[in-house]
Design a protein around this nucleic acid. Structure first.
Lengths: 119, 119
DNA sequence: TGAACATATGAATATATATTCATATGTTAT
DNA sequence: ATAACATATGAATATATATTCATATGTTCA
């Protein structure tokens, strides 16, 4: 009997045809990584709250901080993460910085997520 | 001039009307927490790969481990996380355990995520 | 010019979690 | 009964990251 053991898997392939098909359907490693990074950004209550706030309207850092009851610093740090993920954009008006959503898919992703947790 | 400073926010509310409106639209704390927990589960490459594998077909632990080139133990640990999040279910057939998807929204969430990262 | 203010940011700390390793559990076949 | 095997799991380690604290940057207004 063939020994299909691999380096990092101490058990053998049982259904080779299915594994091969799944391998074909698997997106590129790079895309999978980017997708995980995106969801990682959504995987934090503070950032979720910030994004929900921005569903209502563009908002400055102070207002967001007051709304979700977090320090200005914590909010600013998280806005940076959201900015890097291209989920929010900003505009400056004097010393006030207004943040707003930079993606149309967020709401739909959240809605789908809600369908899972409330079903 | 009013001092609107709060415990955990060292700056004042600038646009009270918008903050109030955003507060009304904000989902329950509990839901926001659950939503973040759900996305946290998606925020890991190994789990993303497992879920993509299961888009093709139900699959046993060994096959998944071989496919994504991870140890049986690591896969089993992550399957537990996915199970706890009610994203996968399983059936036993002798000593082999077959895992499959337990949610219809996952694919749509992933597709929306792809639209963000590839746009 | 300088005080007040909105925001950003680096460093440190605390906490969560992914993987590994060793081993346990439970099933099949001889 | 026992060997072989598929899977599960507890503990330990390593790593990522959220928040805090102190402070820097840049703007407005008196």
């Amino acid at each position: 009997m063939l020994d299909e053991r691999r380096d990092s898997c101490e058990c053998s392939v049982i259904h080779e045809d299915i594994v091969n098909m799944a391998r074909k359907n698997m997106p590129k490693e790079e895309h999978l990584y980017d997708l995980a990074e995106l969801f990682k950004v959504f995987g934090d209550t503070t950032r979720i709250k910030i994004l929900y706030a921005l569903f209502t309207s563009e908002m400055c850092v102070c207002d967001i901080a007051s709304l979700i009851n977090m320090t200005q610093s914590a909010v600013s740090h998280q806005l940076r993460v959201l900015k890097q993920a291209r989920l929010v954009k900003y505009r400056k008006e004097g010393k006030v910085v207004y943040y707003s959503l930079d993606d149309d898919h967020i709401k739909q992703i959240f809605d789908q997520g809600f369908m899972h947790i409330t079903e």
